[in-house]
């Protein structure tokens, strides 16, 4: 009787592990297919950037590398589109935003986390409520206002607003709640450190992991931003990469050298992919932390 029971249990266990094995296979197959679906486009981009215009418009689908990568590169460098200038502009704006955003979001979070003042809850609730309101809805007034105060066609309206970033603030606040004990600040006070100095020399270094994650996110979203820069930046020397990409589409598309088009798309996409693959561990972990409370 006891033996039978044990056998029954053994069989059940086998059935369960067998079921799990099947589910594991199904899960892996589906995930591999989804990965292929994600990477396919970038593979074709890479392949097509190595073929010349004649090959690309010849009605053939290319699976293998061609031999015109160097030629496409040279052609793009000599074309009317100044891609390095665009890249430099994009880097200046994205880096500026990332620095200002992380520093001042930490400062705002510190104000809410560390001090007890009358309007604290009012301010905190207000920031949470405006968190998901998109910037597009004030874009009209924003563009007109920038024109009125002569900041139109400069980088200022694309960098400075990063100081007031509710999402980054919220992430920093969450991070402080879990890692920054108030006793450390008390100790600094007893040692005679001023509040501002405490923030810069004690709090900021402790925030490094959170700052790294948010700096990447701010940099990438600014690097990718198309809507606002396209309304603000008008002269050719100020244009960022997304605006240059858009000009590819709006000019007479059929006249373009397709090798150059793919090369330019590649140059705007691949820097981010490389940085992402290098730092993916922190980025993927950081996504979940910031978005939902708790």
């Amino acid at each position: 009787m006891a033996k039978e029971g044990a056998m029954q249990l053994q069989m059940d266990k086998e059935k369960v592990t067998g079921g799990i094995r099947l589910r594991r296979v199904v899960a892996n197959v589906v995930l591999v297919l989804l990965c292929v679906l994600c990477l396919f486009w970038f593979y074709i981009l890479l392949i097509n950037a190595t073929h010349n215009n004649a090959e690309l418009s010849g009605g053939r689908f290319h699976i293998f590398f061609g031999k015109y990568f160097g030629q496409n590169w040279v052609n793009l460098m000599h074309s009317s589109i100044n891609i390095w200038r665009g890249m430099l502009n994009s880097i200046i704006i994205a880096a500026g935003s990332a620095v200002l955003c992380t520093y001042f979001s930490s400062m705002t979070a510190y104000a809410i986390h560390c001090y007890d003042f009358k309007l604290k809850n009012v301010v905190f609730t207000f920031i949470l409520m405006i968190m998901t309101i998109p910037t597009q809805v004030t874009a009209l007034g924003f563009v007109q206002f920038m024109r009125n105060i002569h900041l139109h066609d400069t980088f200022v309206p694309l960098i400075v607003p990063a100081i007031a970033a509710p999402v980054t603030f919220f992430y920093m606040k969450q991070y402080m709640d879990s890692t920054l004990p108030l006793s450390i600040i008390e100790a600094a006070r007893i040692d005679g450190s001023g509040e501002f100095r405490t923030f810069n020399t004690i709090v900021m270094p402790m925030m490094k992991p959170a700052i790294a994650v948010q700096a990447i996110f701010t940099f990438v979203s600014s690097w990718n931003n198309y809507f606002t820069p396209a309304l603000i930046l008008k002269s050719d020397k100020n244009k960022t990469l997304p605006i240059l990409i858009a000009t590819l589409r709006s000019a007479d598309y059929m006249k373009f050298d397709m090798g150059q088009v793919y090369m330019m798309i590649m140059l705007s996409i691949f820097p981010v992919i490389v940085v992402y693959l290098a730092l993916s561990k922190y980025i993927v972990g950081g996504v979940a932390l910031g978005a939902v409370k708790g």
């Binding site: 001042f104 979001s105 400062m107 705002t108 510190y110 104000a111 809410i112 560390c114 001090y115 007890d116 003042f117 309007l119 604290k120 301010v123 920031i127 405006i130 910037t135 809805v137 004030t138 874009a139 009209l140 007034g141 924003f142 007109q144 206002f145 309206p157 400075v160 607003p161 100081i163 007031a164 603030f169 509040e195 923030f199």
Partner: peptide, 24 residues
């Protein structure tokens, strides 16, 4: 100091978001 540390956020928010909203 809570208020002092909030100044950058509030100032930038008012200038680059609130004024444009009112103008819109």
């Amino acid at each position: 100091w809570g208020y002092i540390f909030l100044i950058p956020f509030i100032a930038v928010y008012c200038f680059f978001q609130l004024i444009p909203l009112v103008m819109t």
